[in-house]
C-alpha cells in the first residue's frame, strides 16, 4: 500500500475512535437519582430498578446488540421474529427481483429510445411525469391492484429502479459516437448486430452508472417499504424494534443497512471499472 493510503486509513480509525469516545462520554449515566423509599413500587413499575435504557443508548449497548444479533444470525422464532441474516436475505431477495425486472424493461426500452429521436421525444413527457413520483406513493395503488403485499414491495423496487437505468441507457446509446456508427454502417453490419457489437460496449459504462444509481435507490426504498408492509426484511426488523423503542437494536439495524448498501455499491463500482476497460 502507498503511504497515503496508510495515512488516510489511520485517520479514518482515529475519526471513528473520536466519534465513539465522544458518544460514550455524552451518554454516560448521570449520577443515580435518589429514590424516595416511600414509593418503591412506583419505581419498580417504571422499571427504574432494572437496567432500563433511558435516553440515547451508549456505544456499549450497540456493541451488545451487535454481538447478540451477529452471534446468532439465522435463528427463527416464528413468523414475526427471525435472525438478522434471514431478514437481510428477504430484503436482498426483493431488491434483486425488482431490480432485475427493472433492468429487463429499462435496458431494451432505453436502447429503443436512445436510437430513435422520434420515440425519445414521444416518451419524454411520460418519463418526466412518472420519474419524480416517490416510489412509496405507488404502494397503496400497488396493494389495491396487485392484491399481494409481497409482490407490491417488489413492484415498488421495480418502479424506483426503472428510471435511472432507462434514462442512462437512452442517454448512453444516443451518445455513442457518430463516427463509430458510420464505420459500422459502411461495413454493412446489420442493425441488431450493430447494437450488440458497437453500441452496447460503447454505452455500457453509462448503463452501469444508471444501474448503480438504481441499486442505491432500491436499497433505500426497500427499508421504507418493508416498514410499511411489514412481515419480513430488514425494514420490518427496524419497525418491530422501533415499536419496542429499542434504540440499540434500531441503530444496529441502521449499521447493517449501511454496510450492505456499501457492499452493493462496491459491487457496481467494480462492474463499472470492468466495462470501462472495453473502450
Amino acid at each position: 500500500m502507498k503511504p497515503d493510503t496508510w495515512k488516510s486509513a489511520l485517520l479514518s480509525v482515529l475519526i471513528a475512535a473520536l466519534f465513539i469516545g465522544v458518544w460514550h462520554l455524552a451518554t454516560l449515566p448521570k449520577a443515580a437519582t435518589a429514590q424516595s423509599a416511600a414509593n418503591d413500587e412506583y419505581a419498580v413499575l417504571l422499571g427504574k430498578t432494572s437496567a432500563k435504557q433511558t435516553g440515547f443508548p451508549p456505544p456499549l449497548e450497540i456493541g451488545k446488540a451487535i454481538v447478540k444479533y451477529l452471534g446468532d444470525p439465522f435463528y427463527d422464532h416464528g413468523p414475526n421474529d427471525k435472525g438478522i441474516a434471514i431478514q437481510l436475505g428477504h430484503s436482498l431477495g426483493r431488491v434483486g427481483i425488482g431490480f432485475l425486472l427493472a433492468a429487463l424493461v429499462a435496458i431494451p426500452l432505453g436502447f429503443t429510445i436512445g436510437m430513435s429521436p422520434l420515440i425519445y421525444r414521444a416518451l419524454d413527457p411520460f418519463i418526466q411525469v412518472l420519474k419524480p413520483i416517490s416510489p412509496l406513493a405507488w404502494m397503496p395503488l400497488a396493494l389495491y391492484t396487485i392484491k399481494d403485499s409481497n409482490i407490491s414491495g417488489i413492484f415498488v423496487i421495480f418502479i424506483c429502479s426503472l428510471w435511472p437505468m432507462l434514462i442512462n441507457t437512452a442517454f448512453g446509446v444516443a451518445g455513442v459516437r457518430r463516427d463509430w456508427l458510420n464505420v459500422a454502417r459502411t461495413l454493412e453490419v446489420r442493425p441488431l448486430r450493430r447494437a450488440f457489437t458497437v453500441i452496447l460496449p460503447a454505452a455500457a459504462p453509462t448503463i452501469v452508472t444508471g444501474a448503480r444509481i438504481s441499486m442505491g435507490i432500491a436499497w433505500l426504498v426497500i427499508v421504507a417499504a418493508e416498514m410499511l408492509v411489514g412481515g419480513t426484511g430488514i425494514g420490518y426488523f427496524v419497525w418491530n424494534e422501533w415499536n419496542n423503542l429499542a434504540l440499540p437494536n434500531v441503530i444496529f439495524a441502521i449499521l447493517m443497512i449501511g454496510l450492505v448498501g456499501m457492499a452493493l455499491d462496491h459491487l457496481f463500482a467494480m462492474l463499472q471499472k470492468w466495462v470501462t476497460y472495453a473502450e
Binding site: N39, E41, Y42, V44, L45, L46, G47, S50, K52, H77, G78, P79, N80, D81, N240, E241, N243, N244
Partner: peptide
C-alpha cells in the same frame, strides 16, 4: 417476546393485572 408484542414484561403485566403506575406518581 419479539415474535408477539415485543414489549417489556412489566408493562404488559401492569396493563393486564390493572396494578399500574399512572405517570403522575401514583400506583
Amino acid at each position: 417476546p419479539p415474535n408477539y408484542l415485543n414489549q417489556p414484561k412489566t408493562v404488559l403485566e401492569q396493563v393486564l393485572t390493572g396494578r399500574f403506575a399512572d405517570g403522575l406518581g401514583q400506583v
